[in-house]
Design a protein around this nucleic acid. Sequence first.
DNA 1: GAACTTATGTCGGTGC
DNA 2: GCACCGACATAAGTTC
Lengths: 101, 101, 101, 101
Amino acid sequence: MSGIGHNSAPADVTLSVTDDQLDRANVASEELRGGVERIERLEEEKKGIGDDIKDVYSELKSKGYDTKTIRKIIALRKMKPDDRRAMESMLDTYKAALGMD
Amino acid sequence: MSGIGHNSAPADVTLSVTDDQLDRANVASEELRGGVERIERLEEEKKGIGDDIKDVYSELKSKGYDTKTIRKIIALRKMKPDDRRAMESMLDTYKAALGMD
Amino acid sequence: MSGIGHNSAPADVTLSVTDDQLDRANVASEELRGGVERIERLEEEKKGIGDDIKDVYSELKSKGYDTKTIRKIIALRKMKPDDRRAMESMLDTYKAALGMD
Amino acid sequence: MSGIGHNSAPADVTLSVTDDQLDRANVASEELRGGVERIERLEEEKKGIGDDIKDVYSELKSKGYDTKTIRKIIALRKMKPDDRRAMESMLDTYKAALGMD
DNA sequence: GAACTTATGTCGGTGC
DNA sequence: GCACCGACATAAGTTC
């Protein structure tokens, strides 16, 4: 699109915005627009995957699994086994201290 | 309510907004403002309590307790004991099924 | 606190946990329990206020106000007026740059 | 791995778990495991895209743009233009009612 | 300590 | 009528 034509020396010096400023603004606009659109495309992709994940949960649910528990399982699997066990052990200690046996 | 007095015959009939409309707008404004301010007061209170909670956690942390574990404990204590045990048991089942022993 | 009695010299030296350890554990337990219960009380209070807030929103909604907009308003009112205007102005600039007029 | 061997008639009838139950458990396990692993793969993909998005924001930020404003812009662009204008107009009305001009 | 992401809870709507 | 579903709101956890 850019700029051919409007650079041709405006006689009207009363304008409060210069050509140069317009050019910079346009460049900036395109920079911004590009970034925004890229983010939007990526977010669509991300949403698509999110929907896929939801589908898998639905499928498991329809087979009788409890999705909340599955979420917990997945959270646990993200941890390193040793860390996980340490965490579980500490939780048990606290439960014992409070009589939650 | 209010409004007595300024209803006395405006000569200027060119106004596009009638007195009646202004009255309603004012009433509505005050209704809205009242609600908004009430919410803001309540949110301040709520924030205060949130800060108190944070303090208790800090205190416990400084005594050597692990706040993350405490949060889990509090979540568990919110459940009815039977529900809690059922949930824990299901989690154990799933863990066993996936070899997370 | 409590504890009277079990300090009286256990003859049974085969125990793997000493009285001293039990004492410390009890103290720690009570410390933990106290904190946990205090947090739970505070969270109840907090929940009560949250319910009050919800009531005000419901009331406003039943009078025809849009709660989503009210939430935005309250968020805006949390800002310092100058900051708010600066933010709004920047948003307008970006909107203009992207042709969202 | 699955099942070869354990079907071959255990003589030990005192076991409290039958072969049939084991089979079902194994099937169920594999069903569960499959779902869990599929979710984990999808979540990784999702995270990758999330990282890409973060990169674009960083890039824009390093060029001088305000990421918070960009997020608002993107939220606005998600709406249908008419809805967006209706929302903005309502917000303006409420602002005026509360003297936020 | 601020901001972003994820998880959980809640509410209004809709289908069986 | 109840239960599921999506949207919204809040809380929690994570990261920089």
